[in-house]
């Protein structure tokens, strides 16, 4: 049992680790020609690459590589030992492509150009975690970005040119609110009302059916197991004796048969154990003379 629990625990841990590993990192946005976007720590408008942690846990991307050359995936390594490489859940980081990695942890050895493809590579230097293709006709000052395509904002399959949004989650700011979408799709509210009323009724109808069924079970209208017990030999002998004592009275025989039928088929009678137990009872406080606080009256 303990072993089973241990296996389950380890499996759960493994699943958790899988959910928070490097594969949850994506390249969410790239700006190859920075003419008006953010400046780096040195005050220069360098091209930048934005990484996003899409998982629900922290991911450390130290030791990973970034490259714009499929033949050389180890072009620029992210150094280890800097807390800046630890990305919390849903967190973003900007990597500046200055061509000089010595400027800091978040500076890369290459400068991506339009038409190239940027790769995020695992620490083994071979496994491509994510990539993004920069269109060759991308105008200066425009980034290529991945936008969330699912309601939970974990899938980023919509890749398109965008106004640069460094350090900002792609999707929420550009996504219309549900209210706006509802305003366009269902301006009069009939669809929502119809669906909502149906759901409310469905929920309560399901509850009604369940409680109706459970009520019938508890009140005995429905029996889960229909037992058809056969009379045991002693009972059969007792019945035979009773019938013989009553002589040939058909009415009595019919009454006994009906009672037995109800007992065995319908279970209308309680089953008695047939054992009578008489246990001695200890005297309770109210009648115990030794505990009685009212003394017996006596005449002086």
């Amino acid at each position: 049992m303990k072993r089973l629990a241990l296996i389950l625990l380890l499996s759960a841990s493994a699943a958790t680790l899988r959910g928070q590993n490097l594969s949850d990192l994506i390249i969410s946005e790239v700006l190859p020609c920075n003419d008006s976007s953010v400046v780096d720590a040195y005050g220069a408008r360098s091209p930048w690459i934005e990484l996003l942690n899409t998982s629900q846990g922290a991911v450390n991307f130290a030791g990973c590589y970034l490259s714009d050359d499929p033949e050389n995936l180890r072009k620029s390594m992210i150094p280890k030992g800097d807390a800046a490489t630890l990305l919390g859940a849903g967190q973003l980081v900007l990597l500046y492509c200055t061509g000089d990695r010595s400027q800091g942890t978040l500076y890369l050895d290459f400068v991506p150009s339009p038409g190239s493809e940027v790769y995020l590579v695992s620490s083994d230097g071979r496994t491509i975690i994510d990539s993004i293709k920069i269109p060759s006709d991308l105008p200066a000052g425009t980034s290529i970005a991945k936008f969330a395509t699912d309601i939970k904002e974990t899938q980023f399959d919509d890749v398109r040119p965008s106004k640069p949004t460094p350090g900002t989650f792609n999707g929420r700011h550009e996504q219309r609110s549900k209210s706006q979408m509802m305003s366009e799709n269902d301006p009069h509210g009939f669809t929502l009302s119809l669906i909502a009323v149906s759901v409310v009724f469905s929920a309560l109808i399901i509850l009604f059916l369940i409680y109706n069924l459970s009520g019938n079970i508890f009140t005995g209208k429905i029996r889960l197991r229909r037992s058809r017990r056969q009379p045991d030999p002693e009972t059969a002998a007792a019945i035979a004796l009773a019938l013989s004592m009553e002589g040939n009275d058909d009415a009595v025989a019919a009454a006994i048969a009906a009672a037995l039928h109800l007992h065995y088929a319908e279970s209308v009678h309680d089953t008695e154990s047939g054992i009578i137990t008489i246990q001695p009872r200890n005297a309770s406080a109210w009648c115990d003379n030794s505990l009685n606080f009212r003394k017996t009256p006596y005449k002086k």
Binding site: S179, S183, G189, S193, A196, L204
Partner: peptide, 26 residues
Amino acid sequence: MLIGAAAQMGIFGAYLLALVMGFAPN
């Protein structure tokens, strides 16, 4: 229990009226 579901029509009736009066869906 179904009566409890029927009475929730008030919510959606008011929702429709509020839309007519110019309120946003939310």
